[in-house]
Design a protein around this nucleic acid. Structure first.
Lengths: 351, 351
DNA sequence: CTGAAAGCGCTAACAC
DNA sequence: GTGTTAGCGCTTTCAG
């Protein structure tokens, strides 16, 4: 039981906001005039505007975006679906998306999918559409097993970053094939013949496309490609695979890792084994991670333009939201960044 | 001129959503009944519910969250203000925030501040409050020069991650002092006396607190602390500082870097110089970056529990949004992770 | 169990 | 230049 003398603040949410009406009353004008001032309409007399501005300040007025959204039918926010920010270059793409969106006056709403299999459940994906967003960017990195299920977002504009390209959606992605070709050719041009590829998880479209391009490029050069090894994108898996390579009977003279983190781990394993990089074996990565130049040795890698991918994806989505037609399936080219982890073939390794 | 025979879809935004009214008409019931079904109210006859459900499906009905927000006065979204996702552990904190928020049924809205000085402008920060969020988490990493200005968010619940602690806000952060003490003591216990500290940017509170704790710990052990060197958190700056150290006359036997990226760069510079780590000089980092174990050598570092920081910050903000009182200034402890970059003092370095 | 009415805060359209 | 009216889509009363 509570005593009646204790006055309890009744509002559950402590911040009771002043509405446009309150300001109107306070300033002795109509709500419409307050609205005009808030929206910087020109047809308000200066002294009226000042009066309203003063009242807004006095009452701590801030427009209620829910009401604005309701009127406009727009949320001015784009949803980004991710599985994890901490792996891969997802956060770099997200950063670019957030920046591009912000520049366009949009906010970015994170719609994390805690469990990838969730997406395969109709209901779960359907929930996305209830979110206060005008469109969705799916940074999936291919963890979705059956993208057909994405049909469920039929109602909202959707742009996919990273996909196998077989889906009827708008896709913006790094040109994986071109990048993998660049990496493989670089090694071939250095004279390497025994080039091993360490791929990403089987489920990943990017990994698959990089591996395929590697295979094609080897074949085109008349080289035999040894069986592709597989990591899970993490540096730890790179260490494991690297040790496996280092323990093998026929060590390659060069390794093309499907991402920089695995390349880092692979080099770690090679150092453990006492191999010189690139003296004994050359290593190329993929991504151009922020720290790649500080790895030991500085990593030769394929520069992915995550910023451009994020920017393009956002621009595309925004134009879809505006109902404009837009070009689909934009592929962003990569660049080879030669640093110190690759070199010409030298002697034969003593195993 | 357009021909009249061509029928043009008039909607600017291509996705015309069915409203609750449309469903009501389609199902031959009132809008209320549809609302009840949508909200899983129990008092609806099963066959009525099925009828409504069918209509919802047929029309592709999805509730409009703007309208809901307007009624409820809540957005069920928390805003996260960041300056950059790509540096530091920001994205790991963000990931944890997004996950915790999602679990609580909240969405996470990114409010990127493209230019840190923006925050110092009253108007700019004021805009945040117009966003469709119920509270704000500021992951500032101390790039704000005058946090007093944050007073401007008076209207919305606010939690700050990383701060100098002098502000009257709710703060959740890693226990920087404890971590830096751990790192410094570890080196001292290994017998090191010449321990150099490479700090982060002068503006950063974390950097400042780590440096102070290092200084205190050295002093407490009766050791002289050489002047603190300074990087900008990046691996590149680590390389630069590392080269500076490697070129110096009196090389230290150990270096405590204020973050892992700089430690990586410092080790890179030492390798260039031909120094063994930890044979000639030991290196400790701070953060326990995802790849730290794959650096060469595997980096001894201070594990920051970003996940816990993000989770706590979110929990705190959520309870503030619910108007509950909450403990403030929660500091999350760190752990020392000993790997292979630190060892006992050996011989004197030949310079 | 279901429906009708009212209103959340804002703005477009139209008065004056 | 300013006020009035109406309604965005939904939910919370209150009636039946």
């Amino acid at each position: 039981m509570m005593t009646e003398t204790e006055i309890q603040k009744p509002e559950p949410a402590a911040h009771a906001r002043a509405s446009i009406k309150d300001v109107a009353i306070h300033a002795g004008v109509s709500a419409q005039t307050v609205s005009r001032v808030a929206n910087r309409a020109t047809n308000v007399r200066p002294d009226t505007r000042d009066k309203v501005l003063a009242s807004m300040k006095a009452l701590g007025y801030r427009p209620n975006s829910a009401a604005r959204n309701l009127k406009s039918g727009r949320f001015r926010s784009i949803g980004v679906v991710t599985f994890s920010l901490t792996t891969l270059g997802n956060e770099r793409t997200l950063d670019a998306v957030a920046e591009a969106a912000s520049t366009a006056g949009y906010t970015t709403t994170l719609l994390p999918v805690l469990d990838p299999t969730q997406l395969d459940v109709a209901g779960a994906f359907g929930r996305l559409e209830e979110q206060a967003v005008d469109g969705i960017i799916l940074i999936m990195s291919a963890e979705v097993e059956s993208p057909e299920k994405l049909q469920l977002t039929a109602g909202l504009p959707l742009v996919i970053v990273d996909s196998d390209g077989s889906q009827p959606y708008n896709i913006v992605d790094t040109d994986q094939e071109q990048g993998a070709r660049l990496a493989t050719r670089h090694l071939i041009e250095l004279g390497h013949k025994d080039i091993l590829h360490v791929s990403g998880p089987a489920i990943s479209f990017s990994a698959k496309r990089r591996a395929e391009a590697y295979l094609h490029t080897m074949k085109a050069a008349g080289l035999d490609a040894p069986p592709v090894l597989r990591g899970d994108w993490t540096a730890a898996s790179g260490v494991a695979v690297g040790r496996q390579i280092a323990a093998g009977e026929h060590p390659p003279t060069a390794v093309f890792a499907a991402n920089d983190q695995m390349a880092l781990g692979i080099m770690h394993a090679f150092h453990e084994r006492g191999w010189q990089v690139p003296g004994d074996v050359s290593v190329v990565g993929f991504d151009d991670a922020e720290d790649a130049a500080a790895y030991w040795p500085a990593l030769t890698t394929i520069h992915q333009n995550f910023g451009e991918v994020g920017k393009r994806a956002t621009a595309l989505l925004l134009s879809m939201i505006d109902g404009k037609a837009a070009p689909k399936n934009k592929l962003i080219p990569t660049d080879l960044v030669v640093r110190s982890s690759t070199g010409p073939v030298r002697g034969q390794l003593s195993s």
